[in-house]
Amino acid sequence: MSEIQTVPESRRFLSALGPGLAGALSVTLIHEGARRVLSHPPRMDVLGKRSLKKGLRWFGVRPSHGRRLHRQALVGDIISNSLFYALVALGRPRRPYLRGVLLGTLAGVGAVLLPPFLGLGRSPRRAKRSTALLTVAWYLLGGLSAARATRTV
């Protein structure tokens, strides 16, 4: 009788966090860089601050302000996006780019359409069409970055 070698689920998930972090960092870096140079960039940092404030208030905690709130929102974005993009590295190792494209596109479309429904103010799609397209493109880039990172693990 032959033994089948299986990797424990917790170990697979931990190894998927590396590519997830690569995807999250690429999205965060492009957002932060673009908001400093573009006239109408997607302001996912603003949505991050709003969601952090809303969550903290729900728990009865007084949220921070200014730069401290901005840093906390960035850390929260990196953590949540890392967990999301880690899904790219889970599953069959033969198709990470397909998962990266699907998950990145899904995240981008969600970032464009969901903010008003979540009580986070108006969505980026109402600002300019180019803003919405950049949002989807950048999250897609994050999915592709996570997929590429699976090839190096």
Rank of each mutant, 00 (worst) to 15 (best):
A127L: 14
A127I: 14
P115L: 05
L114T: 14
A149I: 10
L114D: 04
V109Q: 02
S145I: 13
T152L: 07
V153K: 10
T105E: 05
L118C: 14
S145P: 03
A147W: 03
G143Y: 06
A146L: 04
R129V: 07
G143M: 12
G142T: 10
P115Y: 12
L144R: 09
V112Y: 09
A146C: 04
L113M: 14
L140Y: 15
P124W: 09
L144V: 13
G143A: 08
G142P: 02
F117H: 14
G108V: 11
A132D: 03
S123D: 08
R148A: 09
F117V: 09
V112L: 12
F117C: 09
S130E: 11
P116K: 06
V153F: 09
R129I: 09
R151H: 06
R148P: 00
T150D: 01
Y139W: 07
V136G: 01
L106F: 06
T152G: 02
T150K: 01
G108A: 10
V136I: 14
G142H: 10
S123W: 10
G143S: 08
S123R: 12
G110Y: 08
R148I: 11
A146F: 06
A111T: 11
A149C: 07
Y139G: 08
R151C: 02
R125A: 03
L103Q: 03
T135V: 09
R122V: 15
T150H: 00
F117Y: 13
G110S: 08
G121A: 15
L141Q: 14
G143Q: 10
G108N: 03
G121V: 15
S130F: 06
L140H: 15
R125S: 00
G121F: 12
S123F: 09
A147T: 07
K128C: 02
P115I: 13
L144D: 00
L114K: 13
A111G: 07
P116A: 05
L113C: 11
G121I: 13
L141Y: 15
L134K: 01
R151E: 05
L120R: 15
S145W: 08
R129S: 04
K128S: 03
Y139I: 11
G121Q: 14
G121K: 12
V136R: 04
R151N: 03
S145A: 14
A107E: 04
A149K: 08
Y139E: 02
T150S: 01
T105A: 11
L140C: 14
A107T: 05
A127H: 12
R151T: 10
L140A: 15
V112G: 10
T150V: 05
